[in-house]
Design a protein around this nucleic acid. Structure first.
Length: 895
RNA sequence: GGGAGUUUAGCUCAGCUGGUUCAGAGCAUCUGCCUUACAAGCAGAGGGUCACUGGUUCGAACCCAGUAACUCCCACCA
């Protein structure tokens, strides 16, 4: 036996993953078994594996492997998301390096580049998932821009348009000046930023002057000194002001009612309007109204019929409507306008100020509220069944604390801006006639047919006169269909796959995309299939570093998952991540967790080496019945725990139960109990039973640690030659067997006996190699004869005898009501012995007092459950008899 | 501003129905062991005002109220 003392994961991982793939173990096709389905949250096609993916996909793999081993038809559908903004940003950057501008080469050529890029770099992440051991049905791999998937997007767009839930209109949207596209509310990340609050003077126009100025085309500097001060964080937008607003109840400004004021620098007249929207307490109580560049101001503008002056270009630079600083970027303009205002005497003061600013999720650019023509989806109707299914419990959230936030969002759902000013994605299936009318259709031909039947004044309309909308749809507009579209539920709504796999079982994802994605999938599920898309939503936490920061590329605090797998093995990393990550809780990641995982794999490896090294002698009798019976019971007990943990999605707990069973019960106790002496053979029955136990252990470990378990499963020396396709990955999960609780309890006490002997060794500095004698004066119901062999082996006892009298010349300890004596060659230190007994006595007396206090309390006896009272009485009796024993021993020492 | 969550050993976290096993696990620390499966290991030990203050209860880490700190989500205060 020259097998390494360390488990070497690398070889096993490559070997078994290819083996599983070759033999199609991940493949699922509908059959008579019960399905168990997970659709992967499709990662960005541009993405690389990060720690969040690791956690998320490990959980999915554990669930799917477990289901497979429980006899279900397990199907895990993988795929990627086209991530329009992120991918477009990458491709544009790539082209820029080549000196190519997207707009110069046009849409078609651009898309060719983009696809080329996608084929080259896209899907790396899926290859990385394989290293983790993800048992996805790779034959089902989908991409949200696959032809079928895109068809589904067009069909659903048309469907919703016909229902009147998709419409086009000019709205205030979140504009990303870097991506030059609109983004949805959900894609705006608010962050607190240190800013400046600029106090700017606006001259008030006197009524006499007003007349003059009305008749004059030229702007005059106002002559009077009456002015008001407005606080703003965005001085560069003053040119877009169309009013000043004050609270009608504000006594300070009563004299300004009905007047007008001049915008500084450009000296444009704007009205002073009244609205109690204005907070008198904030700033100066005067608000500049800039309808084009602020959502609230826009609403205020609508209410008061104010004109809209948009002074910004799509890229965030100032346009000619600004009159000054034209062409400057909005932030440059902000800096440059300050000295201008100062010069003009219009700057009162500048204060530091903190406020929340929106950033684009994808490009991190500061979001600009901008009026533009966009497509929207009204989700009010779809939200109703989606909310119901969660409130009724048809869909469960794990943990359920997310129901509240979900509910709030669904009850206040806003229209979804679904158009993006990008090319990478599904182009909106709307077609414009030369006169600006439009029709919605999947193809030019269909659009043309519809266009002809419009009450259009256009005669001789030709198909090529139609132009398709330039914009594409939000990526989430394809991913919300994912659980249906991966099974071709749109193309062929009655096909075998969708009927069999839908609704899926579990969805494992991050709470961050609960609204982005999960809520919308639920809506789509009800709208397009009349049924929720999944039953359980397991929400993972965020992976943070050990000082609590979110792991991110920019902070550089995220380890490369592949490096970790390299260092600790995929199994080690998997269980390292799972160890302390209950659903919904953030995970403070520390490489130490992976070390722990690796060590556990190594422990299993070495336990295996031990068993592998044994020689069997068929002539030997089995002397290990008790150990075997005990472990069988313990195994069933643990299995029940694991089952219960899984049924509540306590994956970390299930792992810990498994870990304890394997390390503590199997390795530290069971194997030590039955281990034959060095170079002595083992009996057949014990050996075979142990091998069977080992097989069961591999089975329950497999979902967590697929590689090492599969590797050991195929050891011919131990398990014999396996039949074709007899693999751990499809092994049947063991059933919970009989649990002998009496035996379990007794064994726990016997362990205390063993620990007691070990303690004495420790105290007396005796080598574990030196055998000791043990005398037991048994008063409890423990059948020591039954455990004799176990105690002898694990505590290295050469001679164990039951006695009826206590021993005086021995070190003693007590377990349950039994007295245990270890006669020692050296003299027993009577003082030390006495001291120990006194200490024990003191503790027992204190304990007894508290129990008696309870029992003496009438209300306790009257109100507590009878079994609790009974327990207390038993505790009291136990304590009393122990005290008696101790007193007896003390008396013996004295004499 | 609204809502949710967290607070238990030096660190990361369990503790599920209030009551044996309730104050736990792993890591870290300390002590002793290169004991023939494993030093990535073995045998032990120390370490706690269960955030704080009240309340309910025969009984509270657990239920209730309040306080504090931290975290997250949502929200338009210029």
């Amino acid at each position: 036996m020259t097998i390494s003392t360390k488990y070497q994961p690398k070889e096993a991982e490559d070997k078994w993953y290819s083996y599983w793939m070759e033999h199609k173990f991940f493949r699922s096709v509908p059959d008579e078994r019960e399905p168990y389905t997970i659709v992967i949250p499709p990662p960005n096609v541009t993405g690389v594996l990060h720690m969040g993916h690791m956690l998320n996909n490990t959980i999915q793999d554990v669930l799917i492997r477990r289901a497979r081993m429980k006899g279900k038809n397990a199907c895990w559908v993988p795929g990627t998301d086209h991530a329009s903004i992120a991918t477009e940003a990458r491709v544009v950057a790539m082209l820029k390096e080549k000196g190519i501008n997207k707009n110069d080469i046009g849409r078609e050529a651009y898309m060719e580049y983009a696809w080329e890029w996608r084929h080259k770099y896209g899907g790396i992440i899926l290859e990385q998932l394989k290293k983790l051991g993800a048992s996805c049905d790779w034959d089902r791999t989908r991409f949200t821009m696959d032809e079928d998937m895109s068809e589904a997007v067009y069909d659903t767009f048309i469907h919703l348009y016909k229902k009147g839930w998709i419409y086009r209109g000019v709205r205030m949207v979140n504009w990303d000046p870097q991506g030059k596209t609109a983004v949805s509310d959900e894609e705006v990340i608010r962050k607190e930023v240190n800013q400046k609050l600029y106090y700017i003077r606006y001259q008030v126009v006197t009524s006499e002057f007003l007349v003059v100025s009305k008749n004059s085309n030229t702007h005059h500097s106002p002559l009077n000194t009456d002015y008001l001060i407005i606080a703003t964080t965005r001085p560069e937008t003053i040119m877009a002001d169309t009013a000043i607003c004050i609270n009608p109840n504000d006594e300070r400004y009563k004299h300004l009612h009905g007047k007008k004021a001049f915008i500084p620098l450009i000296n444009k007249e704007i009205p002073i309007i009244l609205d109690d929207y204005v907070d008198m307490e904030f700033g100066t109580g005067c608000l500049k109204v800039t309808p084009a560049h602020d959502l609230n101001d826009y609403e205020l503008g609508l209410k008061h019929n104010l004109p809209v002056v948009d002074i910004l270009n799509d890229d965030g630079t100032l346009n000619e409507k600004a009159q000054i600083l034209v062409g400057e970027d909005r932030f440059a303009a902000r800096k440059k306008i300050v000295p201008l205002l100062e010069e003009a005497g219009a700057l009162e003061k500048i204060e530091d100020y903190k406020s929340q600013i929106g950033f684009s999720e994808r490009t991190d650019a500061v979001i600009e509220p901008k009026l533009s023509m966009q497509w929207f989806c009204d989700m009010n109707e779809m939200a109703k069944p989606a909310l119901d299914s969660v409130l009724k419990g048809d869909i469960k959230f794990i943990p359920d604390k997310f129901i509240n936030t979900y509910r709030y969002w669904m009850e206040n759902v806003e229209d979804w801006c679904i158009s993006r000013q990008l090319w990478w994605g599904q182009q909106i299936p709307a077609w414009y006639l030369p006169d600006g009318q439009y029709v919605v259709a999947k193809t030019r031909e269909e659009a043309f047919c519809q266009a002809k039947s419009l009450k259009s004044q256009i005669s001789n309309l030709k198909s090529e006169d139609l132009t398709q909308d330039e914009d594409v749809l939000d990526t989430w507009f394809s991913s919300w269909l994912w659980p249906i579209s991966v099974f071709d539920g749109f193309k062929d709504p009655n096909n075998e796959d969708i009927n069999y796999y839908y609704p899926t079982n579990d969805l494992v994802t991050a709470p961050e995309i609960l609204f982005f994605w999960v809520a919308r999938m639920i809506m789509a599920g009800h709208e397009f299939r009349g049924q929720a898309p999944f039953r359980n939503v397991y929400l993972t936490g965020i992976v943070r570093d050990k000082i609590g920061r979110k792991m991110s590329k920019s902070l550089g605090n995220s380890p490369d998952p592949l490096d970790l797998i390299d260092k600790y093995g995929a199994d080690g990393v998997r269980i390292g991540m799972l160890r302390s990550s209950p659903a919904g809780n953030d995970l403070m990641f520390d490489e130490e967790h992976c070390v722990w995982g690796r060590n556990f794999a190594n422990k299993i490896w070495n336990a295996f080496r031990l068993v592998k090294g044994w020689q069997v002698d068929d002539a030997l009798p089995n002397t290990n019945e008790t150990a075997i019976e005990w472990f069988a019971s313990r195994f069933s007990e643990a299995l029940a725990e694991i089952e219960s943990n899984f049924s509540q999605y306590r994956v970390s707990e299930a792992l810990m139960s498994t870990y304890k069973l394997v390390w503590d019960d199997f390795c530290a106790w069971y194997l030590e109990m039955i281990k034959p002496d060095y170079q002595k053979p083992i009996d057949r029955e014990t050996y075979d039973t142990t091998v069977a136990f080992f097989e069961d252990i591999l089975t329950i470990l497999h979902p967590f640690m697929p590689f090492i378990t599969e590797e050991l499963w195929h050891d011919e020396e131990i398990f014999g030659k396996r039949a074709d396709l007899d693999c751990c990955i499809v092994a049947k999960m063991p059933e919970i067997g009989a649990i002998d609780t009496q035996l379990l309890k007794q064994t726990e006490l016997v362990k205390e006996v063993i620990a007691g002997v070990r303690n004495i060794r420790q105290e007396k500095q005796l080598s574990p190699k030196e055998p000791l004698e043990l005398r037991i004066k048994a008063n409890s119901s423990i059948d020591y004869k039954q455990f004799k062999g176990i105690i002898a082996r694990t505590a290295n006892i050469s001679d164990l005898q039951l006695v009826s009298e206590k021993l005086n010349d021995a070190t003693s300890f007590r377990v349950a009501n039994d007295e245990l004596y270890v006669p020692l060659a050296i003299n027993v230190d009577k003082d030390a012995e006495k001291e120990r007994l006194e200490k024990e006595k003191e503790y027992l007396l204190g304990f007894l007092r508290s129990v008696e206090a309870k029992l003496g309390n009438e209300r306790f006896v009257a109100n507590a459950k009878p079994e609790v009272v009974e327990m207390e009485q038993k505790k009291k009796a136990d304590a009393l008899s122990k005290l008696q024993i101790i007193d007896h021993s003390l008396a013996g020492l004295a004499g």
